[in-house]
Amino acid sequence: MHPDGSVVLTGRKGNHAARDLTRAEHKKLDSLLTAVDFADLPARSISATSQDRFEYRLRYDGHSLVTDRSTDLGPADDLIRHLAACMRARQ
């Protein structure tokens, strides 16, 4: 999320600017971002044995995370699910 409140979601088909999040989506996003402790997360959480999995990349407040969601990342997984739902709502 950028200082102006905008969010950029990137899917397989390219960028989707989601500045138009609904009030409920934005409120949930704020709550989820507060719950995620990015400093305690690994920068990369990818299974060495998995093949053909999606990768999710998050960048927020100077932190980056790349995950294939093969490992439980707690609130970060909830954040990814919410952002995916926001993207689906705009397709």
Rank of each mutant, 00 (worst) to 15 (best):
S31F: 05
A35I: 12
H16I: 01
R23W: 03
A35M: 12
N15L: 00
A24N: 04
A17W: 08
L32K: 00
T22G: 05
A17P: 03
N15T: 00
T34M: 06
A17F: 12
K27L: 08
D40N: 15
F38T: 11
A35C: 03
F38A: 12
L21S: 07
G14Q: 08
A24C: 04
L32W: 07
L29F: 00
D30G: 05
S31Y: 07
N15S: 03
T10S: 13
G11V: 02
A35T: 10
A17S: 05
D30I: 05
D20F: 02
D37H: 07
D40K: 13
T10R: 11
L29T: 01
A35Q: 15
A17Y: 14
G11E: 03
G14S: 10
K13G: 01
H16F: 06
G14V: 01
A24D: 13
T34D: 13
D30Q: 09
H26P: 01
H26Q: 11
A39W: 00
F38C: 13
L21P: 04
H16D: 06
L41T: 15
H26L: 14
D30H: 01
A18F: 04
D30C: 10
D37N: 15
L33T: 07
G11A: 09
D20Q: 07
L32D: 08
T10N: 05
D20L: 05
K27E: 11
A39T: 13
F38N: 09
T10E: 13
L33Q: 05
D20I: 03
K28I: 00
A17I: 02
E25T: 06
D37M: 08
R19F: 15
T34E: 15
T22H: 01
A35D: 15
R12G: 09
L21W: 09
V36R: 04
L29A: 01
D40R: 12
L41R: 12
H16G: 06
F38G: 10
A35S: 13
L33C: 08
G11I: 01
K27W: 01
A24R: 05
D30Y: 01
A39K: 15
K28A: 04
G11T: 00
D30F: 02
R23H: 07
K28E: 04
A39H: 14
K27S: 11
K13Q: 10
R19V: 04
R19W: 14
T34K: 14
G11P: 00
D37L: 08
T22M: 03
T22D: 03
N15M: 02
K27H: 06
A17D: 07
S31E: 14
R23A: 15
F38R: 07
K13D: 08
D20H: 10
F38M: 14
R23I: 07
L29R: 00
A18M: 11
A39L: 15
G14P: 10
A18E: 09
A18Y: 06
L29G: 00
H16L: 08
S31Q: 13
K13N: 04
A18Q: 05
E25P: 03
T22N: 08
L21R: 12
K27M: 09
R12F: 15
D20R: 05
A35N: 14
D20E: 11
A39M: 14
L33Y: 07
A24T: 12
K28F: 00
H16C: 08
H26D: 09
T10Y: 12
L33I: 04
L32Q: 10
A39P: 11
R19A: 06
L29W: 00
H16K: 09
T34R: 09
D20K: 09
D37R: 07
L33M: 10
K28C: 02
L33N: 02
R19L: 04
